[in-house]
Structures are given as C-alpha cells and as structure tokens.
Design a protein around this nucleic acid. Sequence first.
DNA 1: TAAATAAAAGACAAAAATATCTTTTATTTA
DNA 2: TAAATAAAAGATATTTTTGTCTTTTATTTA
Lengths: 143, 143
Amino acid sequence: MFSKTCEYAIRAMIYIAQKSKTGNRVGIKEIAQGIDSPEHFIAKILQDLGKKDLVQSAKGPTGGFYHDAQSLEKSLADVVRAIDGDKIFTGCGLGLKQCSEDRPCPIHNQFKKVRGEIKLMLENAKVGELSEELEQRLTFLKR
Amino acid sequence: MFSKTCEYAIRAMIYIAQKSKTGNRVGIKEIAQGIDSPEHFIAKILQDLGKKDLVQSAKGPTGGFYHDAQSLEKSLADVVRAIDGDKIFTGCGLGLKQCSEDRPCPIHNQFKKVRGEIKLMLENAKVGELSEELEQRLTFLKR
DNA sequence: TAAATAAAAGACAAAAATATCTTTTATTTA
DNA sequence: TAAATAAAAGATATTTTTGTCTTTTATTTA
Ligand code: FES
Ligand code: FES
C-alpha cells in the first residue's frame, strides 16, 4: 500500500507527537528504537519531513524532533502525499498512465470507490489524535 | 497498490481472456502491444502464471497464450495472490510485522475495513467477466 | 571559550524491482 | 525431414528502494 519510507514516516510522526505532547523533544535514536526502524534511514526521512514543515527539530544538546500545534493537526494524508506523492489518491489501480472516466480500466469504478475511502481514512486521521490512543496504550507502533 | 509486475499480470490476463473467448491464441508480442508492457518482462510474468495454472500456453506456430474454462473463472484476487502474495489482504497498513487485534497499529480498525473491501473487490472481479466489458469497448487496458 | 551533543548533509552499499538480450526447446507446416 | 515459429529458460543490465557510514554544522552547557 505505502512505501517502507512512508510507513516509517507515519509511525515516526505519531511517535514524536506522543512525546512532544509533554513538551519533550525526542532524539533520532529513541525514535528509531520506538518505531523499530533503521536509525539513519528514519533520520533522512525526518529531514525531508522537516523541510516540508511536517515536523520541527532543533540541533545540539536538548535538541531533537518535536511537533508544533500545526504539525499535530496534520493528517496522515499530508504525510503520505509528502512522501509517496498522490499516486494512491488519484492513480489507476491497474497502472494505466492516467485514471480517466473516458477511458476507464476494467476495475475503474470499484477501484475509484476504495481509493476514495482510503483518502477519507487518511484525511480523518490526525497525527495528534492518533498519538493519544498511543499514549493510552490502545495502539502500538511496533510489534 | 500493486507492483508493476502485478499490474501487467492483471492486464495481460484480461487481454488474453478477451482474445481466447473466440478460440484464438495470442502471442507475446501482441499481448505486450495490447497492454503496453515490455515484451520480455510480460513474457516472464506469463511463464510464472502458467506454472501456477492461471493461464495456458502452447509453443510453436499457431501457439501462444490462451485461457481454458477454469482460468476464465479466476478472480483478480487469485492473480494478485500469485504475484504479490497476500500482504495486501492481511498485512498491516503501517508495516508492523503482523497485523493483530491484540496489538493494533493506530489505523488498524479503519485499515482493516478498506483492506476487506479491496479483497472483496478483487474476489468479485473474474477475468472472464472483465474481458466482456473490454470486448464491448466499455473499458480499456492502455491509455 | 572548549567540549559535548544532536541534527544535517553527503557519500556509499546492498537489495529488490523492473527491463532487456540471447539461447534453447517444443511444435507446426511446407 | 528441414525450416519457421513461438514460448521457455537463462543471463545480464538498469533503476529504484532501502539501508549504512562518515563528515559537517549548529547549539548548549560546563
Ligand atoms: S482508470 Fe484504472 S482506476 Fe481509473
Ligand atoms: S495492525 Fe496495522 S493494520 Fe492491523
């Protein structure tokens, strides 16, 4: 569904959200450990998300990653779009160069429907909210 | 959503179905042309599908690929499972090693739902049926 | 101001996915 | 039976994704 990069990105975003609710910044090592991802890999991803202003960071001692109010309001759709682009939201399920009503592929109608539901699901899932269920240990970011 | 390999596989299956309804076998070149895929790549894929008995083939002049009655009854779910495995049907949306009710990821419930709909969509889509809409030029396999 | 800390940046490596090219095998037909 | 045809098989190449390692830059604190 999503690229590995995107999966790590989402998990990291929610992890950081949980930690930064209590005003804490969180280092790359702890994040990697907390979401079970390669350390340097998630570091790159967070750099990228940082440039796109989906996460905040500070260098030096006491530094680390955190979320401001705006970032906490971001949806998973925002994260997915930033990493994987919008192929999943608008692309053809059978890989035709363009999804189109005029020249639909054999599963266009059905696919369009689930594609829309995925979009809705991701748009309604806010990073900040998801981190609350995490805090309550109702959900988890690694197995 | 699906790998390129899987997209080509599905498109080829439907293309072959259409052609083999009229008793024709169809060569790899025509298939590649008809679904806009690399010739040698789709050849490999079809070899694979052949071994798994999702498509039939014959060598030599008048040879080519075709579908028997059983293959026409195959669903896209069968094709996807043969190529991409069942990750899409049972895997965790955020890439946790296992999807589980006991230790769900933050989008488990919502994801589970759409995952189920994808499964249903693919199980209800039979290769033979899809090829009929193709025949009527209501749907297309390339842009 | 020097040392320690932590992210940013850049270079490199491995693995997987995608794509191409060549040779072999089976089958048909002239 | 020889030539032609078409898939099967095998080898190789390219690109993308994923992962690792090293150096640099910014910041804090002693
Ligand atoms: S054309 Fe394939 S999903 Fe719309
Ligand atoms: S645990 Fe992630 S989808 Fe079920």
